[in-house]
Amino acid sequence: MQTRSMQTREAKKWVDRAIIAVLLLMGILMLMPFFWLFSMSFRPAPEAYKMPPSFFPPSFDLSNYRTVLESSVPFLKIYWNSLYVAVLVTIGQLVTCTLAAFAYARLRFPGRDSLFFVMLIGLMFPAQVTILPIYLGYAKLGLLNNPLGLVLMGLTSSFGVFMLRQFLRSQPKELEEAALMDGAGYFKIFWRISLPQLMPALGALAIITFTGAWNAYFQPRALITSQDSMTLPIAMDLLRGYMSQGNLSVVMAAMSMAILPVVLLFLVAQKMVIEGVTFSGIRA
């Protein structure tokens, strides 16, 4: 009896090992596109289409990177646009969503619940339903082909308000009540007590918002056509023009730089990124 259970335990161990081996293989396969693009970015252009493909850089030759920066595509400007939009959108959402979350979670005022409900409905609308009027409005205001337009439309989100409100409601209220008794105003309470309480959730929201803005494709694609105002995801089409000239390595050098911030963010704060993204469910 004892030997039998030892045998099954032994068998189970081997099953575990086999499954992990298969997973390892799949994991490596999953990463192949990234290995390949990274290795390609260091490869001299004539070798781009060499077969069999290799997934490790032959040398760390930076000439493709130099070509990107010196090309006719204003890559640095585009990179700057992406940073500008993603950073400002992130800051904007942190500010507007925190303020609103504090009010919805902690204050009483007439119409509070209906306002919150109206805000929540926003979670249901796909980006496709808002883009046409925004396009028409921006055309009138001169905000087409302007990264500022992308910033403005991203300054708040129903999701951010919802997430921070839920988080704040799970935090203890006693400190605030004590502060109120001591005669502190609501702005002071917000700044001194609720904001520090919200810090962990703000980190998650910042990561989600930044990656979402960095990856956004649909809206920039609809609102921006001039090269100087593009963000990285839509500029990829432009860079792909190179591919027809056989200069794939240069495209991949640009791509490596384009995905770098998100990859770094992920390597450094894996757990936080995963928790944030699964909570929000962004589909980049």
């Binding site: 507007t96 303020l99 509070r112 805000m119 339903v129 046409l132 009027p133 925004i134 409005g137 609501y186």
Partner: peptide, 27 residues
Amino acid sequence: QMQAGYIFVLPSILLYAAFVLAPVIIT
């Protein structure tokens, strides 16, 4: 409390009305 409440929700409500609610209705 009422005043603070309205001031705090104002920025997000205005932006939401301009970039989500109104566009949906116009669409």
